[in-house]
């Protein structure tokens, strides 16, 4: 087999191996293939390039974001330069040169405790909370976003012909024009609406009902097939969005949620000694200045003690403490 074809086969395997539907028999087929020394060498070459790029991912993303947008005109000129015959042939068999029209995907990320405001090309604004990742694709017929991790407030420019769709875990949030907060930490996601109407529906292939949320409503969803039913509650959007001003405001929220929020803000993890503590209800305001002070103040809002640990802070149940 020529090197180029072998490299293609190796790349196919590497791409295939991260598929969600890969099963053990296919894995065994991979094992047989990669056991051939020439295949193994080709695979290792592709794997080492992939791992090198993945290890450098944060820096790469940062650098790629700073590059000027690719000049589309070059692509179309090159394509037109193929001449009338090629163009006609492409049209005749129904091909569209995708690269000419393919919309760009922009990505944004924030470090722990960092907040960032972004204005998108359609005039919508997004404020990202710490430890968040967001990708944005503004296509001609829809605006597609994905929030794999973190929290953001979206203020969406109304455009009926281009729905604004946000993929969060196994749900899709669909809006026409409104302002709302989306939080996606681990398996927990929540949507709080300040203005307008927001629809939360299961992603393709996921079962579940469609929720329509109105101003002042909050929906909490736990991802996964065995998760409890989503909870609709009344929320104060100002409180939910308080992180943008360096505060966290809670009215009767579970301690687990507070801890997840703090872990978006600070580098050193805050952990619960006993997972059952996560259900303890908390009300109060936390000013986000420094982690030690914040955990100490948190301990005044619930029957807990905050103990420094080698990694960060541990919250321990303390029935003696007055909440």
């Amino acid at each position: 087999m020529p090197d180029d074809a072998r490299r293609g086969a190796a790349a196919d395997w590497l791409a295939r191996l991260s598929a969600a539907d890969l099963d053990a028999s296919e894995a065994a087929a991979f094992d047989a293939w990669v056991s051939q020394p020439a295949n193994g060498a080709a695979y290792d070459a592709v794997l080492s390039v992939a791992l090198e790029l993945q290890a450098a991912a944060p820096k790469l993303i940062e650098e790629l974001n700073e590059l000027p947008a690719p000049r589309r005109s070059n692509a179309s000129r090159a394509w037109l330069a193929l001449g009338g015959v090629a163009a006609a042939a492409a049209l005749a068999i129904g091909l569209t040169p995708l690269s000419v029209f393919a919309p760009e995907t922009q990505t944004f990320a924030t470090a722990k405790g960092e907040r960032k405001a972004v204005t998108l090309a359609d005039g919508s604004t997004v404020e990202l909370n710490g430890g968040s990742r967001l990708s944005v694709t503004l296509a001609r017929h829809e605006r597609r976003l994905s929030l794999p991790q973190g929290e953001a407030i979206f203020d969406v420019t109304p455009d009926k012909s281009r729905p604004f769709l946000i993929a969060v875990g196994d749900r899709t949030v669909r809006v026409v024009g409104t302002r709302f907060d989306v939080r996606h930490l681990g398996d927990d996601l929540s949507v709080t609406v300040e203005r307008g109407v927001v629809e939360v529906r299961p992603a393709d292939g996921v079962k579940g009902r469609i929720w329509r949320l109105h101003p002042g409503e909050r929906l909490d969803v736990v991802e996964g097939p065995a998760a409890p039913a989503p909870q609709l509650s009344v929320a104060d959007p100002q409180a939910v969005e308080s992180w943008r001003t360096g505060k966290l405001i809670y009215r009767d929220r579970p301690l687990g949620e507070v801890v997840a929020d703090l872990n978006q803000q600070f580098a050193r993890p805050v952990v619960l000694e006993d997972p059952a503590l996560a259900r303890t209800r908390v009300s109060g305001v936390l000013i986000l200045d420094n982690e030690e002070a914040v955990t100490r103040r948190l301990a005044l809002l619930a029957p807990i003690k905050a103990l420094p640990s080698p990694e960060g802070f541990t919250l321990r149940s303390d029935p003696a403490a007055k909440p």
């Binding site: 969600a20 995907t105 990708s135 694709t137 992603a203």
Partner: peptide
Amino acid sequence: FRLHKLEGLSHAETARAMG
């Protein structure tokens, strides 16, 4: 490549983001 390998989206999430 960027969405899946660099940003850690699954194949399904990448597919959704790209349509």
